[in-house]
Design a protein around this nucleic acid. Structure first.
Length: 557
RNA sequence: GCCCUCGUAGCUCAGUGGAUAGAGCAUCCCCCUCCUAAGGGGAGGGUCACAGGUUCAACUCCUGUCGAGGGCGCCA
């Protein structure tokens, strides 16, 4: 509909001002229905270069504008806005589009290449180290990352969801020492407990499982605990497998599936790391100092150079990071998005600098990043900081168990990722309109209730014309539904899942308002089918939108 | 000290350079003989942190100040 209007407008604009470019014409959505369905600022844009009054230009443009069956009227308003009001024919067309394409309405092919094939994009998210249960921050990353994956797929991308974890390095040493200590019944109050050890109760569970010679199956591999209290190699392997399995269970409970898990250790095993290091040395971006090997990341915009090989001969985390991203590139991902907590912000410059230093043609904006800010969990008006199991932080599992998967996902994705977020457990548990998740889901279920009551076949709604369906509520609702595809595209371009959440809340509000104002199942058969086709279309949009957030659309509540 | 993000109603937050800055909660008033009241309608509530600048037009872009959070490890 929007492109239809632009096609009408472009030749007119060019006849008035030949230099104007097609993509410089703005076609906006007015906030208020009083300003029509679409609005352009074209006259105001042209006013200055042509030195003419914008309202005069606007009336000239309207005069030249060809007639279209989809346009009811065109008006000049304010400083020189040109407002378009869609016709009943256009509204009927919009609803038919939705009803004919219930599964695909809102989709587009912006992710396709020139030949019309979906392009590959990889989204890396969560990527928690296997040193403890997932916390709320991981949950936010999981909700945002998975929603982004769904949105990009809806926009025509070929999406791979990937989880990277460090199964080696200093933190895993700490984990091993912590479990070892607990095997010996040394608890964190004991001076003998490792200084940087993990203090949560879950370490005790792992120690007990280890001593009981438990068997863990994770990612297709089976790990047997030796049960030998000082077998550090076995403790290490078992603890990592145990926590990976636990994180998997949390992710399953959160309805998130990854396509690929990548282990940091895999890069050490195939000499990949050395290859990268040698390439960096060969390219002349390294130097030795204090017995360590440094990478000149300042050549690529970093504020200081970084150690890549420590004085003890091992690598810092950032060499495997560079290696991993080279690996992504070599696997054919020309586009990669990393969803991380904002505390990892400093790695952006570093990883990009490392990739540039390799000189293999990777763009300097690779990879892209979506960072999320911290979360405060509130309950009973007070901040919740601890979980029984993890000790020092609130786990994702705590939230899912307490408020459910749908509410958790919605709340964690409903805010702009670069804003800090307050997660109100009491609100998320509420089962009324205070709680946006229930409010939206209820709108969907309510529609189903009416359709059930009606009991007819949906086919009967396919070709109903909407003549006479023009109450304020109806116009607002149709306008909202028509905005869905643009909103989906916007969410994908901005990597902003929260815009979907906001849209759904607004759409549900329009529906509830309409519902309250209108008796749908009236005696007049045609009028009844008109009502039903509109609310069925609304139901489809709500369902498709909820699906982009990974939230269920129940038929009954 | 340097870098990044944020600052919008009492609270939680939206707001692609455009029209009278919007929701929800909280407060107050009203609406079910009717498809789910798990709902709806209305009222009050704002110096968009502050000060400059760019623009026909700034909550939005630029600069500075103040405030909050995060980062500035041979931790990830």
């Amino acid at each position: 509909m929007k492109s239809h209007l632009l096609q009408l407008l472009l030749p007119v604009a060019q006849s008035i001002h030949p230099e104007i470019l097609a993509n410089s014409i703005q076609m906006d959505r007015p906030k208020s229905i009083e300003h029509g369905d679409f609005s352009t600022n074209l006259a105001m844009m042209l006013a200055k270069p042509m030195k003419k009054n914008p309202r005069e230009l606007a009336s000239l443009i309207i005069e030249k504008l060809p007639k279209s069956p989809f346009i009811e009227k065109v008006e000049i308003a304010g400083a020189g806005f040109i407002n378009f009001y869609l016709s009943e024919k256009a509204r009927t067309f919009i609803i038919h589009e939705i009803l004919k394409n219930p599964l695909t309405y809102g989709q587009n092919t912006s992710g396709h290449d020139d030949k019309g094939h979906p392009q590959k994009v990889q989204i890396e998210f969560v990527s928690a180290n296997p040193t403890g249960p997932l916390h709320v921050g991981h949950g936010r990353g999981a909700a945002i990352g998975d929603s982004l994956a769904r949105i990009l797929k809806f926009n025509g991308w070929d999406v791979t969801r990937e989880f990277y974890y460090n199964d080696t390095g200093a933190q895993i040493d700490n984990l091993t020492k912590s479990v070892h200590a607990r095997c010996h019944h040394i608890d964190p109050s004991d001076p003998a407990f490792p200084e940087d050890g993990y203090r949560g109760e879950y370490i005790v569970d792992i120690a007990n499982a280890f001593l009981n010679k438990s068997v863990i199956t994770c990612e297709g591999k089976t790990i047997h605990a030796s049960g030998n209290i000082d077998d550090l190699a076995s403790i290490r392997a078992f603890s990592v497998a145990y926590l990976r399995q636990e994180q998997d269970q949390d992710l399953n409970a959160f309805h998130i599936q990854f396509d690929v898990f990548t282990l940091e250790s895999s890069f050490y095993q195939h000499g990949y790391i050395e290859k990268v290091v040698n390439q960096l040395i060969k390219n002349g971006f390294t130097y030795e100092e204090d017995n360590a090997l440094w990478l000149k990341t300042t050549d690529f915009g970093d504020d200081k150079n970084r150690v890549m090989k420590k004085s003890d001969g091992s690598y810092t985390y950032f060499i495997p990071d560079i290696t991993y991203h080279l690996n992504k590139w070599e696997r054919g991902f020309k586009r990669v998005i990393n969803e991380q907590g904002s505390d990892h912000h400093s790695t952006i410059t570093r990883v990009r600098a490392g990739l540039q230093a390799l000189k293999v043609g990777i763009p300097d904006t690779y990879p892209e990043y979506v960072l999320h800010q911290m979360i405060t969990v509130m309950k009973g008006g007070e901040e919740v900081k601890l979980s029984k199991r993890a000790g020092t932080y609130v786990t994702l599992r705590d939230l899912i168990d307490e408020v459910g998967c749908d509410a958790t996902r919605y709340f964690l994705v409903a805010r702009k990722s670069d804003s800090q977020l307050v997660f109100d457990i009491d609100l998320a548990k509420t089962q009324n309109s205070d709680n946006p998740v229930y409010y939206i889901q209820y709108a969907h279920a309510r529609i189903e209730g009416v359709l059930k009551q009606w009991g007819g076949k949906l086919d009967a709604l396919q070709d109903i014309d909407l003549k006479g369906l023009d109450s304020t509520q109806e116009l607002i609702l149709i306008k909202r539904l028509n905005e869905f595809p643009e909103m989906v595209l916007h969410a994908s371009l901005e990597l902003a899942p929260h815009t979907i959440a906001n849209y759904l809340k607004d759409c549900a509000a329009d529906l509830h308002s309409y519902y309250n104002d209108t008796k749908f199942l009236v005696a007049n058969e045609h009028e009844k089918l008109q009502h039903l086709s509109l609310i069925k279309a609304t139901q489809i949009v709500l369902k498709n939108g909820l699906n982009l957030l990974g939230v269920n659309a129940p038929d009954k509540m």
